[in-house]
Design a protein around this nucleic acid. Sequence first.
RNA 1: CGGAGUGUGGCUCAGCUUGGUAGAGCGCUACGUUCGGGACGUAGAGGCCGCAGGUUCAAAUCCUGUCACUCCGACCA
Length: 480
Amino acid sequence: MAKDKKLVKNITPRDENFAQWYTDVVREAELCDYSSVKGCLNYLPNGYAIWELIQADLDRRFKETGVENVSLPLLIPESLLEKEADHVEGFAPEVAWVTHGGMERLQERLCVRPTSETLFCDLWARTVKSYRDLPKVWNQWNSVLRWEKTTRPFLRSREFLWQEGHTIHATYEEAEERTIQMFHVYEDCYRETLAIPFVSGRKAEHEKFAGAQDTYTIEALMHDGKALQSATSHFFGSGFPDAFGIKYIDKNNEPQSVYETSWGWSTRSIGGLIMVHGDDDGLVLPPHVAPVECRVIPIAQHKEGVLDRAYALFDELKRAGYRVKIDDSDKSPGWKFAEQEILGIPTRIEIGPKDIENNQVVVVRRDTREKIIVKMDEIAGKLRDILEVIQQDMYNRAKDFLNAHIDTATELDEMKEKFKQNRGFVKACWCGDPECEGEVKYVTGGAATRCLIEDEEMISDKCIWCGKPAKHMAYWGKAY
RNA sequence: CGGAGUGUGGCUCAGCUUGGUAGAGCGCUACGUUCGGGACGUAGAGGCCGCAGGUUCAAAUCCUGUCACUCCGACCA
């Protein structure tokens, strides 16, 4: 009977109220806490540890491609922000301003960085002189501030942690290549490390980053059928650098423009992890980003020898390189099981008198609850295999879910119907006019283009809204 | 920025209509019994009721203002 019962209280079922479920999981797993400033989070150890693992993985991938880390200021003078017209127009409504230093009013107000393109360009305008100074392939791990009106933990906060990479290159082609290269780094990291599948591609014209010529996006599908823009890579051409007066002298002693890129990945990815993999009992973390891969839970730990054996196992796993913890608190075993599940720890090892007697342990998978009996002297090796299987299975399940929620439509009614019934993405063709997209968004209750599909044959030659010749095929979806 | 709602021990909330000794459950602390799916008993600690005014002999409760947060919209490279 107990098996049929919902094992974890305090978490609203996912299908009953997804938004509430999300909030419950964030709270119960102690990932973050609201601070006294709206939209600014306290990242708690469980949440920050996930970010550290993502950070380490991404940073390694970046450095393999030659990225160098730097740190630029928190504040941007207003005059600097205003140098690129599209950029300032895009960000002006959501920047916060510093107007005073101590008691004195500042001559020029300073905005708290919403992103740092302007700071990088300002620096490069003063320091880049020659083709020998190029390329610059820099990145910073920091936080930025955007004065959002509606905020949600991880998904949309005012201050958020991220990395922002900024590069400049001597040629258009090299910069474009770098944009796509970093886009692929993001794709690999989502797939291999976060076990999150996605659709991806270029953004439509009006959805691009303020000032960008091209924006590449990764769009993951959450369990409620809504898309989450999960990382973006932008190609600026030379518009931005030109506005800042960045020029270099080429081999022929001629001044030339530089070409710029930027790319970012934020703590929003943690929200994606929760909403792609989580279930009614809480968080489910892919092993590669699980701060704790395995929790050892002694059963009947007051009995002679149980705790000693459990500690020995714990030490052995730690020496073998696992991120492992032991729960030797005086809570009941049921409590400990539930807690491990809420936290999303990928495996637990139960070790009790029966196991010790049989020289075995019981490994329980978080994702499937499958119990696997493993001989005591084989566990240090086998656990790695089990974790890898979990990682792979989680990706495959999410991939199946994504595939099952991608549909096509060639007529508007068909599309409306599909958004009414099937959650997810719908492929449809479009003339490229933002007004048509707006109309579609209105009649479907919020579905817009998420990214363009450029490597497949178009399923129709006319726009889903106006019927005029289609320029693009796109994934449409409702988004966070 | 529009609509709605909520501020009372750490958490979830009751009490407010009809003003009169500040409550419950959970959590926390100590001790004891338990221990293979959220155990139980006993004892205990913890609150100027978001803030500021006002009405009153008396305000968590009524009035005015204010601040904050949550949800739904609009907005959101």
